[in-house]
Simulated assay, not measured.
Amino acid sequence: MKKNSLLVVLLALASTAQAQRTAFLPGQPWPDNKGTHLNAHGAGALYDQGRYYLFGEHKIAGPKGNSAQVGVHCYSSKDLYNWQDEGIAFAVAPEGSGSEVEKGCVLERPKVVFNKKTRQYVMWFHLELKGQGYAAARTAVAVSNKPTGPYKYVRSYRPGAGQWPLGYKEEWKQPAPGEASLKWWTPEWRTAVTQGLFVRRDFTPGQMARDMTIFVDDDGKAYNIHSSEENLTLHVAELTDDYQGFTGKWNTIAPAGHNEAPAICKRGGKYYLLTSGCTGWAPNAARSFVASSIWGPWQQLDNPATGPDADSTYHSQSTYLLPVAGKKDAFIFMADRWTPKNPIDGGYIWLPLRFEGDQPRLRWADRWALSAFDQPQPKAVVAP
């Protein structure tokens, strides 16, 4: 019996050792330490005291899984390849509780940052109130004393209430004649959007906030970047020192550009932003932008994806740019392959983000490792 027990243990250990990943396999099933496919969609990641923490939407099977039935799932890792299940970091409130975050609400793209002043972990996410579709367009915050949670719900916001964006022209503060009757997607309508059509509409209640990410700059200032104005314009809004509210300072990015799924990083003193177009659950070609200040102006660059399936960003949509600890200017492009009919089956595309001058570049790889960042950056292609 003892020999048989020892054999079972040895076989189990051997199996575990064989299961340890040493590379990323984009698009393939990604089992956690329990052998279950990671359940962290629209994810963000945090590096804290030698460990990475992954936070994402916990999905269930069937169309009902597109709403929040459980909450935000957390995993941890030391190497980014192998993930340990840390359970539900933020649980939705019970059905019928009347909470803004009760079961059945829409809770998307959770991002967690650490606040050095308060010593708290702060989670932000896009929130849609139960039964209201995507009409609420709010961004919400929760806090915890531990990275793995549990996170306590604080409140939700419509940012920018009663505040004009930076550099907003005085003549744009009043509606232009006939703007209410403009036909959508015409050049005149796009001009009206650029000149504040929806900013004015939402001035008092606050601006819409859907797909979002959080960025902490080198000076400790944090920013919430989100799709606003019916997903037509991205907004960047400065957070308070405790990262739990807004200072009222904000600006627009690519007005009328129809961007969502923002993901941002900083390299060489410049800010790089990757987004997607707005085509529902269907993938599309990614966009990229660069700026010398987070407040802009932002210059639009090319589609960062290259090669086959670049026009669909390899059948995925951006969610986060993860800095790799200990490697200078090394960022992982994190993206989702959505499966709305059965959300729990959604897959993950993680690829190394490289740069050709100011242009971020993505290239498909069936298999890759962090050693890819040890290779020199590709040279910028100079047009003749």
Rank of each mutant, 00 (worst) to 15 (best):
A369Y: 00
W184K: 14
S292Y: 02
E179W: 15
V113H: 11
F331M: 04
P308G: 09
G269H: 01
M1L: 11
G277H: 14
K3A: 10
S67C: 13
H126V: 12
V154N: 11
G62R: 04
S5Y: 02
P323A: 09
N82T: 01
F114T: 12
G245M: 04
P343R: 07
D309G: 00
W185F: 14
I225G: 02
G346R: 09
S292V: 03
L182Q: 08
N115G: 12
A372F: 13
R361Q: 09
G220I: 04
G326N: 09
D366S: 02
R210A: 02
E95F: 05
Q120V: 04
V324G: 10
Q300A: 12
L166M: 12
G178D: 15
A285L: 13
R51I: 04
D302Y: 03
F355H: 00
V193F: 05
A369S: 06
L38S: 10
P376Y: 00
Q163N: 06
N39F: 09
A61N: 06
G280S: 00
P360Q: 00
D48P: 00
R109I: 14
K116N: 15
L38D: 10
D48L: 02
G167I: 05
F90W: 13
Y320T: 10
L232M: 10
F333N: 07
K249Q: 01
V216Y: 11
A209Q: 02
S312D: 07
R287D: 10
M1C: 06
D302C: 04
S144L: 14
A23G: 03
L46H: 08
K183V: 15
Q359I: 07
P177A: 15
I88C: 13
T148F: 07
P378W: 06
K103Y: 05
P150A: 15
L25Q: 02
A365H: 04
R367C: 00
E128S: 03
G162D: 00
K64L: 14
Q299P: 03
E102F: 07
V382K: 11
T186I: 08
Q377H: 02
K130D: 11
K116E: 15
V216N: 13
G280T: 00
I225Q: 01
S312N: 10
D374H: 08
D374V: 10
L166Y: 10
G65N: 12
L197R: 07
H58G: 01
W298S: 03
Y52T: 07
D79Q: 06
C278K: 01
Y52K: 09
Y168H: 14
S227P: 11
Q18K: 05
P205Q: 13
K64S: 13
R363E: 07
K152W: 05
W350N: 03
G248I: 05
P297I: 07
G346N: 13
Q163I: 00
A14G: 12
A161Q: 10
P323W: 10
E356I: 02
N115Q: 09
G133C: 13
L127Q: 05
T36N: 08
G326V: 10
L13Q: 00
V106H: 08
Y271F: 11
R155L: 11
A256D: 13
P255A: 09
Q207C: 12
I349F: 01
